[in-house]
Design a protein around this nucleic acid. Structure first.
Lengths: 346, 346
DNA sequence: AATTTTTACGCAAACGTTATAGTTGTTTTA
DNA sequence: TAAAACAACTATAACGTTTGCGTAAAAATT
């Protein structure tokens, strides 16, 4: 079955006008008399005319829409980022197309392909944990596609980037744990290749070294799939628990890892924070009502999305090729709750 | 700046062939010699040729993509539904375009417009709580756009629909509360106009009446914005708390309302379930680790999405207009956790 | 009244692709 | 050996819009 819409030609025929007259009337051209405009506009309205976007984009060469690739919308951080993107895009008359990579390189490539097929004017992307090779994006950029990275950026591609002070965030969280009297602080993080992983690891090690606490490599666990694969995370947690001395605190480096780690500790009847304290990067709105309430490193997700979109649109709207790129770093915020405080469980 | 791609015409010129020969070679037509095919294919590959989707869709009259409208992706239920949709759509070679209405009628209309602009082949929609008038969708359906409703359906439009046994779900939950010894059970729900609201209310009242418990209209609170507006929900909770007798349990009717109610009760230092028990519709994966763990009515979200998409694609692929429509009702599942059990807090 | 200007419209080409209908030159068939 | 069949290509017309150019009629200027 086919979705047949009314075309400019139908209007022209019905009103005994030429196609171009109708087109110009609809676009409010000065060449067309007010009377005719009114006639056409009213008829179009009544018959629910909508210009065919394919034809328009084909003609105009751009589509007024931008593509988004995130790992998973089922993640408060990313859904908040997307809200920021929508907000900025809509205000500038652009639409967004959202896709999920589910941390898979193949899906990422496929999604980007789909977006290009949809003739987007630009791309906002946080690369999948699985992705090491960004050649596919490089090619597109070389062909002239404006790209802005956010969250997980690639340093192999030169363009605007929006991230948070990942290092500062985990530095602050680690310092807080040390201040609260925890000594053996483990770190569960994402894929070793990710930019975010490096920065968060840096903050963690910096804090430990500053306080004269050595780095125990065994306390650092990588999850290639960023916590999407529960087995992987389970193994990481199990290995940490088997260590001697057993960690008395864990710093988790991504939204999914944080909440999943909490769930796993619950299942094992490990008390938080009495047995092990937990601090993590997460934007979940439920941090307050978790058991225990969860100390979280919060990212300005909406602003990340808004800013990234603003920068992308500035490239898209720029008259000449952009060669000077900006690297925006936004601050994180530490919310201290019960999961990291020794005294009493809230 | 402009994203200039190589076209079929460029290839033709370079290879001293006609445009049609190149097109046919790329589509592997039997009319073209193997030698020429190889030549064209190799050149295309090397120069990273991608057919212009606008031109293709314009020509073919369909876009191989379907539009999705949900209230908010920042909601585990909907993101799980979307995963089901993606899964089914991808397997049939379709792409999805996701949009959010944020429960606003205006945004819903705007998004549907945008999707139509993008020339989708079909629409999957859960209507916003604010939406009373579905004329805009009726018009599109009349014009031939295949539509499938899921979750929040409209009975003013005849088409395939996928919902869960909302009545059964809240019946089961209410019965469970009664069995657990709660007597004054309140119900916080969404917009009074929504189909889901009615069905969930039905199950609630049915259970109460069956057990000889009267319906107290004051115990039923509607939130027009489905919990997106915190003030609205706060007022509902406050009013419930001021009642005499004060409810000793609350049944919440949507994901957002459930989690937000929990947060509000926490803020007021009301103990769950000692002061007030809480049972709600929610698909959050964090139900187990909330404080207290939350008794939830869980919907088969992935399957809802998958099934709805399957039905939509069957309309799209149908040779003749579809006039017989199906109403699929999937079962809910009650997970009993601590928030509704009197004895002890886990 | 003859001219220039303005108004309001139509024609036709273009965007990139595909499908239909030719057009060659070669090979098979009766 | 003329006719038919075939192989391998090209020309052309769409799909729905937009836009520069052309043009008739009306209005304004000499």
């Amino acid at each position: 079955m086919n979705f047949e819409a009314i075309t400019i030609r139908d209007i022209a025929k019905e009103l005994h006008l030429s196609v171009s007259t109708v087109s110009k009337a609809l676009r409010d051209s000065y060449e067309i008399s007010e009377k005719t405009k009114k006639l056409v506009l009213e008829y179009a309205q009544k018959n629910n005319y909508r210009p065919n976007p394919m034809a328009q984009s084909l003609k105009r060469g751009h589509s007024k829409s931008i593509g988004i690739v995130v790992s998973s919308i089922d993640n408060q951080f990313f859904s908040q980022v997307i809200n920021g993107m929508e907000s900025e895009a809509y205000s500038q008359g652009y639409n967004v197309i959202i896709t999920q990579s589910h941390e898979s390189y193949n899906l990422e490539v496929q999604n980007v392909g789909h977006l290009i097929h949809r003739a987007i004017d630009g791309l906002l992307i946080s690369i999948a944990t699985e992705t090491h090779d960004v050649e596919h994006l490089k090619k597109l950029q070389a062909q002239g596609l404006p790209i802005v990275f956010f969250d997980r950026v690639s340093n192999q591609i030169d363009t605007h980037k929006v991230i948070v002070d990942n290092s500062g965030g985990s530095y602050q969280a680690t310092t807080h744990l040390l201040d609260s009297g925890f000594k053996n602080i483990a770190h569960i993080t994402s894929s070793v290749t990710s930019s975010v992983t490096h920065q968060r690891l840096d903050g963690y090690t910096k804090a430990l070294i500053e306080r004269g606490v050595g780095i125990n490599e065994q306390y650092i666990k990588y999850c290639l799939h960023g916590g999407l694969d529960l087995n992987e995370l389970q193994q990481a947690v199990d290995e940490l628990l088997a260590l001697d001395p057993r960690p008395d605190a864990i710093l988790t480096a991504s939204d999914r890892i944080t909440t999943s780690t909490m769930t796993l500790l619950h299942k094992k009847n490990i008390r938080i924070p009495e047995d092990i304290a937990l601090v993590g990067f997460t934007n979940t709105v439920l941090a307050d009502v978790l058991n225990p309430s969860l100390t979280s490193i919060h990212q300005p997700a909406f602003e990340i999305g808004r800013k990234a979109t603003e920068m992308l649109l500035s490239i898209i709207n720029s008259k000449r090729p952009v060669t000077e790129f900006e690297n925006v770093i936004l601050p994180t915020e530490l919310f201290i709750r019960s999961s990291s405080v020794k005294e009493a469980k809230a």
